[in-house]
Design a protein around this nucleic acid. Structure first.
Length: 787
DNA sequence: ACTCCTTGGGTTTTT
DNA sequence: CCCAAGGAGT
């Protein structure tokens, strides 16, 4: 019986399946276990998995839970709907979104797409981009959406408008409005739209609401403390009929308020459901007493929280260590040594984690671990899918699936180069504005005598392009993702272009592109048993593995989701955010300095400091046995050395559980800290060097040309005629011979070394003596030639 | 129209 | 330091 694995409180939380339930689960208290057992228990009680929905925040969490449930109940889990908020609701919107005006092929814009769109809008409104910064605008819009304010709602809110005026972005409401219209026109949603539109769907289509209310007899929500209003309301509506809603969370681990998450949702659960049962899981099975006590003493400083006491039966364990190092490099180096020691005692690399506040901190650790031959893996950072060449490929696929996807269109219309440049693009945008249709439709339908002054040549190119895309679009439903995708990537010239380039990094890119293609292949060929569409219950066979399905799947993947082989020998590096839900025997929490952790951004409000503190709490509670905290007195930041103060959070730990490791007295010695990139330069003089180096740079050209001139004679420009000679004329002559003397407005007198024709353009290599050799394209270069 | 270079600005965390 | 955007060159 599965219940034997649970403690009393957990068991109660699992078996009391009816009615609203809140499980407050402290760190390490077996939260995931309880949740998965609850699901398994429901099925054992005869509930069909088809009637259960479990929502998580990350794909990884969903995947893990799915696996654990399969372990518990086997294939009976078929049909269970488990996934992230975004992925599940996006699926629902593909099925029922037509009711609110979205085709099933809608695109999901990622952050990049959204930002580009915003920049475009800000430009089109002639707003000053110093105030209207894309990141700020986007987060403002995002917050509005998560609070369910439509552009119309927003415009009516005098408080929001006033705030915008105060922040010198008075027209934000207008940007928001246009942003939404443009998304609509492109048949696209951003991440927040998925949730927003799900709300719209449930609001405007009672029959759809009823369908899902009746289907989801049991709803479970993981990490409930991280839900925003929009998510909260969806859940509330879906649970309205059966009211079998079970939320699991820990207010102390709420760390996503910057994304609109509101801790109030968990704090107010009992108000929404007065008859709700609350279970508190307070026994920690993960960490030593010292770690738990240290964590408790920190989180106690927060005011807003649900009272609970986390305790453990585990042994006392080692003290929490705190150590200050002289610099970030020292910090990395010292930790690497420490890790080496751990590995030497037989500890597995995978049981060691380095946790930091910001991604940029990873570099010094990478360098130092590599230097010491310690295998490591970095979680997060730039994802495979955000590499340029992959984004290009995806843009093609996206445009094929959804012709109205303007961001995709703009990205690839001239890549590979087709002669559609800024000028034509600007005109296309004006046409889009005037006609109110997507770029693709504009490009496909414009006549030769269009009022936008787009010339015949451009029109032909655009039509050719659209015809190509069209021919692929017609096959989306017929062909599988691999067959079609591979052909698109090859026929579009994407792969060929990359293959002709000869830089080292181009080779990597080509490899990435090929990897992407083989990703398409495995998507199609991978026919594991669990590939059934949990929402419709349909079995997805190979004929269903179309490009649109592939895109749906990858559009909600993040860097942490790119599945790699678990290699237990690798030390794990990640942000604290990424570490939530994970645990390790040994944890190093690094960079404990004011302005870094807590971050400068958090000083504005008490709430933000509390969130940083919760983040610190999350960091500490990842550790099972050994916990090291470190700070650096000097940190290389923004290309500059800054001096730091230790984080307040260290002092907040009850000293009973903490030991300050002695710091070696070395600070009086002259120290040479080396910059990561340019190892030969001491950091302290770097700024100075950088300046002088820049100044010298132009001079470098001075020494170059003569050696490359070879043995040609008669090349000394100095003796050549000057402007006044009157023997010069423009370079429109047919034959340009070698050894011809020419004059350039900028570079002065030069000698033609040779000419060639590249891509239809005649070019000449000219030696300008002290100005160096230049390759000039004759149709552009303002050259005068001696007859 | 494309490429290279400079410049300026910014950096929290992520579905 | 690192990126993105603008400018100048081809």
């Amino acid at each position: 019986m599965i219940l034997d694995d649970l403690n009393t409180e957990q068991r109660n939380a699992v078996t009391q399946t009816e009615g609203p339930t809140m499980i407050i689960a402290g760190a390490g208290s077996g939260k995931t276990r309880t949740l998965t057992y609850r699901i398994a228990y429901l099925m054992q009680q005869g509930v069909s998995p088809y009637n259960i929905m479990a929502l998580t925040f990350t794909n990884k969490a969903a995947r893990e839970m799915q696996e654990r449930i399969v372990q518990l109940v086997g294939v009976n889990a078929k049909g269970l709907l488990m996934g992230t908020f975004h992925s599940i609701f996006a699926k629902i919107l593909r099925i029922d979104g037509e009711r609110i005006g979205y085709s099933r092929n809608f695109t999901i814009y990622d952050d990049d797409d959204s930002k580009k769109l915003i920049v475009d809008i800000v430009k089109s409104l002639n707003l000053d981009d110093k105030n209207y910064k894309k990141g700020r605008i986007l987060s403002r819009i995002s917050n509005a959406k998560c609070a369910l304010f439509s552009p119309e709602d927003y415009a009516k809110r005098s408080d929001l408008i006033a705030l915008d005026e105060q922040q010198h972005i008075p027209l934000l409401y207008k940007v928001y409005d246009i942003y939404q219209r443009r998304l609509r026109q492109a048949m696209a949603m951003d991440f927040d739209d998925i949730l927003f539109n799900m709300n719209v769907l449930l609001r405007d289509c009672p029959d759809v609401k009823e369908k899902y209310q009746k289907r989801f007899q049991y709803i479970l929500v993981d990490e409930y403390q991280d839900t925003n209003y929009s998510q909260y309301l969806i859940i509330k509506k879906l649970a309205e009929y059966y009211k079998n809603i079970c939320v699991v969370g820990d207010d102390a681990q709420s760390i996503y308020s910057f994304r609109g998450a509101s801790i109030s949702n968990i704090l107010n659960f009992n108000k929404d459901y007065p008859n709700a049962r609350t279970f508190k899981l307070e026994q920690n099975y993960r960490s030593t007493k010292n770690i738990i006590n240290a964590a408790n003493s920190v989180i106690a400083k927060n005011e807003r929280q649900i009272k609970k006491t986390i305790w453990t039966n585990n042994k006392e364990g080692d003290f929490v260590h705190f150590r200050t190092l002289s610099s970030d490099r020292e910090e990395a180096s010292w930790i690497s040594d420490k890790i080496k020691e751990l590995l030497d005692t037989g500890e597995k690399g995978g049981e060691v984690a380095i946790l930091y506040r910001t991604n940029s901190q990873s570099r010094s650790f990478e360098d130092s671990l590599r230097l010491k031959n310690i295998p490591y893996i970095i979680y997060g950072g730039t994802s495979f899918y955000s590499r340029k060449e992959i984004k290009d490929a995806i843009a093609y696929l996206r445009l094929v699936v959804n012709n109205d996807d303007d961001e995709a269109f703009e990205r690839i219309i001239n890549y590979p180069a087709r002669g559609i440049g800024q000028t034509t693009m600007d005109k296309l945008k004006i046409a889009r504005e005037t006609l109110g249709i997507s770029l693709y439709k504009v490009a496909f339908t414009l006549s030769y005598d269009n009022p936008f002054n787009i010339n015949t040549k451009a029109i032909n190119t655009l039509r050719d392009f659209c015809t190509m895309i069209q021919s692929f679009s017609l096959r989306v439903e017929k062909d599988d993702a691999f067959t079609l995708g591979e052909e698109i990537i090859k026929r579009s010239g994407l792969r060929t272009t990359l293959a002709t380039l000869r830089e080292l990094e181009d080779k990597d890119r080509l490899e990435n592109l090929d990897e992407f293609i083989s990703g398409l292949q495995s998507f199609v060929e991978n026919n594991e048993e669990n590939i059934i569409d949990a929402l419709t219950g349909e079995e997805i066979d190979i004929t269903n593995k179309t490009l649109d399905v592939f895109l749906q799947q990858i559009s909600l993947m993040t860097s942490t989701d790119t599945q790699e082989e678990e290699d237990n020998s690798q030390v794990k590096l990640m942000t604290i955010h990424a570490a939530k839900g994970l645990e390790f025997n040994n944890v190093f929490v690094v960079g404990l300095e004011e302005n870094l952790f807590p971050s400068t951004m958090a000083f504005a409000a008490r709430d933000d400091i509390e969130e940083e503190r919760r983040l610190f709490y999350v960091a500490i509670t990842r550790a099972r046995k050994i916990l090291y905290l470190t700070s650096a007195q000097m940190r290389y930041r923004y290309g500059d050395t800054t001096f730091t103060e230790p984080s307040r959070f260290v002092q907040e730990i009850d000293p009973k559980y903490l030991v300050y490791d002695k710091q070696e007295e070395e600070s009086t010695l002259p120290r040479f800290v080396f910059n990561n990139r340019t190892k030969e330069k001491p950091i302290l003089s770097l700024r100075h060097n950088a300046l002088t180096e820049k100044k010298q740079k132009p001079q470098l050209n001075l020494s170059k040309p003569y050696s490359t001139l070879g043995n040609k004679t008669n090349l000394t420009p100095k003796s050549k005629p000057t402007i006044e000679d009157g023997e010069w004329r423009l370079a429109d002559i047919e034959e340009v011979e070698s050894n011809l003397t020419v004059k350039h407005s900028k570079f002065g007198i030069g000698i033609v070394l040779y000419t060639e024709i590249v891509a239809g353009d005649k070019r000449a290599k000219v030696d300008f003596g002290s100005q160096g050799e230049r390759m000039l394209i004759l149709k552009f270069a303002k050259l005068q030639v001696r007859k």
